[in-house]
């Protein structure tokens, strides 16, 4: 038997090594197996299942977040293009109405000018006619006057 006694006693002592040692070792090995099946395995399963669940959820949430961001960017782009499109349509309409207005104005101006010209021509012709008639009447009158003067003499 392995035993060496430091403190002088034939039996006992602090450093009394005996069969307690191997039996304790066997006991600890047995405890390892018992604790493994009773504690480490079941608790490990639960904890690792939960960790997996949590990390899966985090990954899923991250995917969803990136999808949302992508959609948001997409929407923003669509909004932008719609805005420029609207601007384009508005400016086009403005141009068109401007053009129409100018055309109408020109047409009206031309018409007015033409009628003015016509009126001027009519006035002119009537003036000459009136002047001719007037001068003719003056001629007649002067002839009449001349005739009378001649007759009286």
């Amino acid at each position: 038997m392995l035993a060496f006694n430091f403190f002088g006693a034939t039996e006992g002592g602090l450093f009394d090594i005996n069969a307690t040692l191997p039996l304790m070792a066997i006991q600890v090995v047995a405890l390892t197996y018992i604790l493994n099946s009773l504690f480490f395995k079941p608790v490990g399963n639960v904890v690792e299942k939960r960790e997996k669940f949590v990390s899966n959820n985090i990954i899923e949430a991250k995917n969803k977040l990136s999808e949302v961001k992508k959609l948001e960017a997409d929407l923003l782009m669509q909004l932008q293009s719609a805005r420029t499109e609207a601007q384009r349509i508005v400016s086009e309409a403005e141009n068109e109405s401007d053009k129409l207005y100018k055309e109408a104005l020109e047409l009206a101006n031309n018409e007015a000018n033409a009628s003015k010209e016509k009126a001027r021509l009519a006035i002119e012709s009537q003036t000459t006619a009136a002047r001719d008639q007037l001068s003719k009447q003056a001629d007649d009158l002067s002839e009449l006057i001349v005739n009378r003067l001649i007759l009286e003499k």
């Binding site: 040692l21 304790m24 070792a25 600890v28």
Partner: peptide
């Protein structure tokens, strides 16, 4: 304490 016995601690250390 079982660990105050040299047999226990040597058993653990040898393991």
């Amino acid at each position: 304490a079982p660990t105050a016995d040299i047999n226990t601690t040597i058993a653990l250390a040898l393991l």
